[in-house]
Design a protein around this nucleic acid. Structure first.
Lengths: 247, 247
DNA sequence: CGTATTGTTGACTACCGTCAAGCCCAGTGG
DNA sequence: CCACTGGGCTTGACGGTAGTCAACAATACG
């Protein structure tokens, strides 16, 4: 594959995983692509389909190459907690021992790259840097988890929704930047692209509370809403303050 | 070091980290102990002392060789969320990128083994199995985190405290078994060994709610309390049901 | 255009948080 | 030995935030 810049070279290295520049496949040299291809399989998941079920034997890892995925846990009576949303380039399956510790469902159409655990073993043997990448991925997730614990354990509904909006806007603006809550001074358009039930189950609230809190934000001129999923953050910095409990 | 059984051999392998049989040091062969010793430092932390502060540059990993540690995050106004409690054999510092994503404080006297990041690099180069161990450690933590999200996002105060008690009893009974909520049929004695504020901040509740819920459990003959920290679970299986939302 | 699904709004409720008083117990000093 | 003190825990009264239930509106879809 001929490329003109380092950025492109990295991005285009793997035909299976064209996502993030630091995606799993990009620790691998060009000449090894056939080896990589032999160890993975491309999979298409239609919208709404679950493809990992909590408690089932964990045989595979996945790299999300296109679309979005929600990861969640259920209580026996049906209460649901969404642990997070995965995006293009994300690695799925680290939160598993013998069995998966979560369920995963496509949010819209999804393309995945599947690697069996034994494939990953072979790949890490051949590409030691991959081990490091996996550890970094796990660290990144652990950091996010800590923030989510604070959100669910100690924040009010208002703070939770503000956190969510800022988080979403960060992840839209820049893939790498979503780990810190930095936003521009001016208005930001965010496309939530998920129903209210998902927002509620992610924030540990009910859809009614989510709806009411959106209403408050509108009334306070913090956001404007276009349709259902199109949200414009009018004063992102104020939302950041609210998210941190300073608003 | 002369040992009589495989179990002892594994346990005694590392003079620094005598904890779990699968502790970080035990991927290392006997003859390499001097190398390991050169890469780590033993540290004593007195009760109540904080030794990792959220947001500070992350230079080191730690292995907890004795005592207990609480890991937590703070909001600017002082609200605290305890993310978890580390025990002998646990690995600390994976939830960090450039900076630590959490603070850590000794719960009672603590002995640590400190490894700089560069030490870990050298160690993983020399002992590739260590990479695998670190990944496993991260996976284990991620699995726990998922359960904690459900607890904080979707469980009632009653369910949270029941979960906590079962969790604690599991971790007391068997170091490895704490990932599943299996308890004996008969009464179990649990020593909480932490103040109510810590329980509250771990469960996302107030100390008053924790206290009241303990009171309810007593009244329902689910537990008996000796002093402040000595709890006997009279019907562990019923507590498990409550923890899962079935009680 | 009609139906179904999803979202919004309102009235009411309940769980848990807040505030305050009192308790228990350990440690201290008279 | 006992009173005193202080910190952590418990208990009670009250209030607020978010949940529940229900009706209605908006949107999607055939």
């Amino acid at each position: 594959m001929v490329t003109s810049s380092i950025g492109d070279a990295v991005r285009d290295r793997c035909a299976h995983c064209p996502g993030r520049a630091d995606s799993i496949c990009n620790v691998i040299c060009d000449e090894d692509l056939p080896f990589l291809a032999a160890e993975s399989a491309r999979i298409h998941i239609p919208s709404g389909r679950a493809f990992i079920e909590e408690g089932t034997p964990a045989h595979d890892f996945y790299v999300l190459t296109d679309g979005r995925v929600k990861l969640f846990n259920l209580l026996p009576d049906g209460r649901r907690q969404i642990a997070g949303f995965a995006r293009r380039g994300d690695f799925l399956g680290l939160a598993a021992a013998k069995n998966y510790a979560f369920s995963a469902e496509a949010l819209g159409d999804v393309m995945l790259c599947r690697f069996s655990h034994s494939s990953i073993e072979r790949l890490t043997e051949r590409f030691p840097r991959l081990q490091q990448r996996l550890r970094d991925e796990a660290s990144r997730e652990l950091i996010q988890m800590q923030r989510r614990l604070v959100l669910l354990g100690r924040k009010t509904a208002r703070e939770r929704l503000a956190t969510f909006l800022v988080e979403q806007s960060c992840s839209m603006l820049c893939r790498k930047g979503r780990d810190q809550l930095t936003v521009p001074d001016g208005p930001v358009l965010v496309n939530l692209a998920m129903p209210r039930t998902d927002i509620a189950d992610y924030l540990g609230l009910t859809i009614e509370t989510v709806s009411r809190t959106f209403g408050l934000f509108k009334k306070e001129r913090l956001i404007t809403v276009r349709g259902i999923t199109g949200i414009t953050l009018l004063e992102p910095y104020r939302l950041v303050d609210i998210a941190e409990g300073l608003g």
